[in-house]
Amino acid sequence: MILVFLETREGKVKKSSLEALSEGARRAGEMGAPLTAVVVGPFDPAQASGVRALGAATLYHLDSPALERYSSEGFVQALAGLVAEAQPRAVWMSATAMGRDLAPRLAARLKAGLASDCTKIALAGGRLEYTRPIFAGKALMTVALKGEPSLATLRPNVFALGDAKASSGEVVKKAADVDAGAIKAWVEEIQKEQDAALDVTEAEIVVSGGRGLKGAEAFDLLRELAALLLRSAVGASRSAVDAGWIGHAHQIGQTGKTVSPNLYLAFGISGAIQHLAGMLGSKVIVAVNKDPEAPILKVADLGVVGDLFEVLPPLKDEIKKALAE
């Protein structure tokens, strides 16, 4: 059995979790093993049909008053109980902020190996092999984990969503045995960042700026462009972040985030090796840079040698026109 933990926010399953579930369905199919999903805490049952349609034979809903809000300590207790009972061969979740916080603590509890932030999973000689970028993508490492279950977190925006099929799967609601007294770290509140509807790691289009923007104001031009595009977010190079033009949550590269959107639009970014490491997984790269020798133009599918301040206004107009058609 492959068990996939589905992350919910306000009762809804995250898209990246459905990607992990889809990969679970593909590999479980190869292994001839059942696919099981689990949600923890508040869950809108109307979401269950979408989960079953992606191939989960069973969807466990673990509930307890102690699981109303996320805590690594509470969620690990609930999941460890289910793992002991269901004995899966593998436990997967999305490599989101929650997944990256939860999976290692669960692995410690289960004394299990964990492959973080995987971008490919394959069945080889009957065992699961996990491929994950190291050095922020400068190299790819493929590992096998000794013992079962093997744990993995799957990078968002990498694994394809499966096709929905008619399914006869069942939902099993279980009261989780969670000792609330053992939870010593609680989320007291969530503070929305004013400038981040969607995180760069989740966005399908990243509009990114670097030193060539010359100041914080120019990021408004990128925000305006991003606002035209669905599921987009604004990214930045390390030099723009270090200059204080935009917050670190937007930084892409080896000491920032690694992204793999459908489209990466780079403005005034030269393409230092540590930045490229964080975005070379993008499906399509378009770069605008004044310097014809800029390394980013050597990796862009479409490179424009030009002044971003001259290209941005007509680009916005052309995109508006294209979207209106």
Partner: peptide, 19 residues
């Protein structure tokens, strides 16, 4: 618990069209 099967350098991206 981790057996490294292989480490590889990802294929280089090729430059596309330059405008």
């Amino acid at each position: 618990r981790v057996e490294v099967v292989r480490i590889e350098i990802p294929p280089a991206r090729k430059a596309g069209t330059l405008v």
